[in-house]
Design a protein around this nucleic acid. Structure first.
Length: 334
DNA sequence: TACGAGGATAGAA
DNA sequence: TTCTATCCTCGTA
């Protein structure tokens, strides 16, 4: 799968460790570095570099983090009060040039100790990044009701994934070009074949699929206990509960969206989490997501809101005391 | 025009 | 039977 063998940069080494290619790594970081990209909101990064996967044009954060000058990273993680802060957030908040420059020699660290700490910090960062990627894929799995392993996808799942990815990254609709292909077929295709089917975004789709494949590979490794947990231990058990074909209820779906403010904060968000009050910021968007999840292309907010109103009688959702447009309240907030 | 409320009905599980 | 989708009418902001 990995096309990066030999002459690897250290960033690429990381990619190879988790089975990602340079392209997908760059894509992950390009996306992760820009908080909005993994967001389904209307604001999308534009520009050719995004529409087209041009790894050479992109200096990934990984490359910055894992180059020979990785010492700054060690210093950041030492200075960081919370190692649990996701790397993506950390990277977006702490620019390299803003990092405090602390001379390790002044701290009296021996080169050997320093090396050890660097190694530990890199491991830490890897875990955090991978955890974030897993979370995003988990979310997609839940919402689309597909398994995380592309090899297991049927033609319908492939179309769902395509729709999702196109939707998420504002790619042109290319579903027809991949019609009647199963996940297995898709995984067997090289980047060139993707390009042939979709000159506009084949490379991007290939890179995204690569990430999914890598994640499935990692999941498998985790499940046989070959690796440590990624910092999101309940990730897959949680994903499994909704990827197992169990029908999902609308209120559960809304909760899922609300659980991912980083990803869906633009279309739905808590106004008062303690009281269970939330606001649908983008009604059409939420309806589209619900339609995607339920395989109901004709879903709209009119229908979705009718379903929400059915919950009034059941005591699951109600309008808050001070009624506002697009604002609802879970009767039993978690 | 978009949203909100609620009645009615159909279909799937 | 339950849950959801769909269609509908009417009211409100």
């Amino acid at each position: 799968m990995s096309n990066s063998v030999g002459g690897l940069s250290e960033g690429a080494v990381y990619g190879s460790r988790i089975g990602m290619t340079d392209d997908s790594l760059a894509l992950v970081e390009r996306n992760r570095g820009s908080a909005d990209l993994w967001d389904l909101g209307e604001t999308k990064p534009s520009g050719e570099s995004l529409e087209r996967g041009v790894p050479g044009l992109y200096l990934s954060c990984f490359d910055m983090l894992l180059t020979e000058d990785a010492t700054w990273l060690v210093k950041v993680s030492e200075a960081s009060p919370s190692p649990a802060v996701p790397m993506t957030r950390m990277a977006s908040q702490v620019e390299p040039e803003q990092c405090p420059v602390i001379d390790s020699q002044e701290q009296g660290l021996s080169p050997a100790l320093e090396g050890q700490e660097e190694e530990q910090s890199l491991e830490q960062v890897q875990s955090m990044v991978v955890g974030e990627v897993l979370k995003d894929i988990e979310t997609a799995c839940k919402l689309l009701n597909i398994t995380p392993d592309p090899v297991e996808w049927n033609t319908g799942n492939v179309q769902k994934w395509l729709l999702w990815t196109e939707h998420l990254y504002r790619l042109p609709h290319v579903g027809k070009a991949f019609q009647d292909l199963t996940g297995k077929d898709l995984c067997a295709m090289c980047e060139e074949e993707f390009r042939q089917r979709s000159p506009q975004c084949g490379d991007t789709l290939h890179a995204h699929l690569d990430i999914w494949k890598s994640t499935a590979w990692m999941k498998e490794r985790c499940s046989v206990g070959e690796t440590k947990t990624t910092g999101s231990e309940d990730l897959w058990s949680e994903a499994d509960s909704s990827c197992s074909g169990q029908p999902i209820h609308l209120w559960q779906f809304l909760r899922e969206l609300l659980r991912k403010p980083h990803t869906y904060g633009r279309c739905i968000r808590w106004l008062n989490k303690e009281k269970g009050i939330f606001k649908i910021e983008d009604s059409a968007h939420v309806a589209r997501l619900w339609g995607l999840r339920k395989n109901r292309p004709a879903m709209n907010y009119d229908k979705l809101s009718r379903s929400i109103r059915q919950y009034y009688k059941k005591g699951i959702i109600r309008k808050p005391d001070v009624s506002q447009r697009l604002v609802y309240q879970f009767v039993h907030p978690v």
